[in-house]
């Protein structure tokens, strides 16, 4: 046999084993389906949470970065002094932009936004302070830099109050990061359980085929030859489990998308549900196959050496 023919036979043999191991699953449909559904659910759970998380991140990402600080000036600080202060702040390296609003400008803005209109004219004096809105430079946008800047600004003489805008958004992000970490841990744990489920299923089929393995070894079968059908069994479990996970996820999203779109319309449709269907269609079966083959490999490796033709 020359090399080309040998390689051709080898490939053919792989395809044969691939199909026959699929046929093997088909011959025990109930047991196979149960295993595949378990794998599917275990993969769908973290993937579903990931989709939710991605959507939350997308919503919160629509608000501007929270590097904006409002400085409320003391009442006795005049407009000129305020202007000067703003220009002085602009020269700080960690500040990229400033905007000065005199107390009367603030009142004007408030009049427009609040809709209180002429009612405000009845006030004996303007209750709003002058404001300097400071934008932190991008290079200094880490939390500790911002807090340091906030601290220095708050201690300045003319400033009554320095307030970091949309601090809640940052909290949301931290929360999001925490959730992300939790999902990663969950995904890792569930991946291990997929590995164990496949490993255990393969282990049972190895025990059922001990006699066959022994004979194969006696007539000169390599470990790779013995391992191959089991690896393909793992491959199919993982792949089909991944497909089941994908279908489960899409069904769940279809169920949930109605209420979410209704909710979104009440918020001027600032967001729409991201399905990530394409990405997950690739990722879930791929992950399944990886875990399946690895699980099978571990199971076979443990038993291969134990089954010697003795």
């Amino acid at each position: 046999m020359n090399i080309v023919e040998r390689f051709k036979n080898y490939l053919l043999r792989h395809i044969q084993v691939m199909l026959s191991s699929l046929g093997e699953l088909w011959r025990h449909p109930l047991a196979s389906i149960m295993t595949i559904v378990v794998i599917g659910i275990a993969l769908a759970l973290p993937a579903g949470l990931l989709v939710m998380l991605t959507n939350v991140a997308q919503i919160s990402g629509q608000w501007q970065d929270s590097h904006q600080i409002s400085l409320f000036l003391n009442d006795e600080v005049g407009d000129t002094r305020g202007q000067q202060l703003a220009e002085q702040l602009l020269s700080w390296p960690d500040i990229s932009a400033v905007e000065f609003k005199s107390s009367s400008e603030s009142l004007e803005e408030f009049r427009e936004l609040s809709g209180l209109g002429s009612m405000l004219d009845n006030l004996p004096k303007n209750p709003l302070p002058a404001v300097i809105i400071v934008q932190a430079a991008d290079d200094f946008s880490e939390t500790e830099n911002i807090e340091d800047l906030l601290d220095r600004l708050a201690r300045m003489q003319d400033i009554a109050l320095a307030q970091l805008d949309m601090q809640w958004l940052q909290r949301l992000r931290s929360l999001n990061q925490t959730a992300q970490r939790a999902i990663q841990i969950l995904a890792a744990l569930l991946s291990i359980s997929v590995l164990l489920v496949i490993g255990n299923t393969i282990r049972l089929s190895i025990l059922n085929r001990q006699a066959e393995i022994r004979v194969i070894k006696l007539v000169g079968g390599t470990n790779a030859f013995v391992r191959r059908p089991f690896l393909y069994t793992g491959f199919w479990y993982g792949f089909l489990g991944g497909v089941v996970a994908w279908l489960t996820l899409l069904t769940s999203l279809a169920v949930i998308s109605g209420p979410i779109n209704a909710l979104a319309s009440q918020y001027d449709n600032v967001f729409s549900l991201q399905w990530l269907a394409g990405e997950l269609f690739l990722a879930l079966p791929l992950l399944g196959v990886l875990l399946g083959v690895l699980g099978a490999w571990l199971a076979v490796g443990k038993h291969l050496s134990a089954i010697e033709p003795n």
């Binding site: 040998r6 043999r13 194969i216 007539v219 000169g220 030859f225």
Partner: peptide, 20 residues
């Protein structure tokens, strides 16, 4: 191997050595 035909039993060594 009792779940395989006579042909498949005899063929096993050839399948293992990768004959066509």
């Amino acid at each position: 191997l009792h779940d395989r035909t006579v042909f498949d039993n005899v063929a096993l060594p050839l399948i293992i050595s990768g004959e066509n």
